[in-house]
Design a protein around this nucleic acid. Structure first.
Lengths: 116, 116
DNA sequence: ACATAATACCTCGCCTGTCAAGGTATTTCA
DNA sequence: TGAAATACCTTGACAGGCGAGGTATTATGT
């Protein structure tokens, strides 16, 4: 399995919101952007991506509309809502906390000279 | 819900292995250690903890034995195996990668002067 | 002309990890 | 005496990730 498969679980929504924070976009392009941002090391699986869109829209964090391109495949665009902006900010803060916690919990533990 | 509940998902096994890396211990005490290491900010849920023990033992990463205390509740001790040590090292490396990736993916994106 | 790849979307159903809820037994302490 | 702490455990539900499969359009190579 590709590196970090499990570890990103739970961050999917925030990652998508972060992409949309800089402007409306659509599924395929968001995934390209993620891939580019991680030097081809990571991308969301399509099923994961579209599941997340449904979830985020239901939560009121994003809104969607069909693009009006006259050629090429149709695209469903998404835009972030105010609630989505707030959720993103919260997710970033949570991440900072979790980041520190996990780092500490994976750090080698020393228990020298300790009795039971 | 307590902060960072979801975000630590997937790190449980590594956290436990890391605790055992400094010496044999048992469930209840491991959780106390985790709580202490995070300044009371985090602890594993009991169900999660014991589920993880089963998983880790089945994977051959830990071994268990009953303590021989003559008083108090019985304790099941766990010790980390060589395979467990390797798994821990791998998990730490993976975490480093994931940490950087996630950080980058939650970082505000700038797309100035961009068309479509 | 025809096949393949790339773009772009989608759903179904399985798997795995988390955890609320419930349970057991012992010891300590007010 | 009875609550809280120590210490273990299982069951069943739930949620998120994703493999597999599907549709439709356009571009590209041969």
């Amino acid at each position: 399995m590709s590196i970090t498969a499990d570890l990103i679980r739970g961050h999917t929504d925030a990652i998508i919101l972060n992409q949309l924070a800089s402007g409306d976009s659509y599924g395929y392009r968001i995934n390209l952007a993620i891939r580019a941002a991680t030097e081809e090391k990571y991308a969301l699986k399509e099923a994961t991506l579209y599941t997340a869109f449904r979830r985020l829209e239901e939560a009121g964090y994003i809104r969607s509309y069909w693009g009006d391109e006259e050629s090429g495949a149709r695209r469903r665009y998404y835009s972030i809502t105010n609630a989505g902006q707030e959720a993103l900010a919260a997710a970033r803060a949570e991440w900072q906390t979790a980041d520190r916690l996990i780092g500490r919990l994976l750090e080698p533990v020393t228990r020298e000279g300790e009795t039971l």
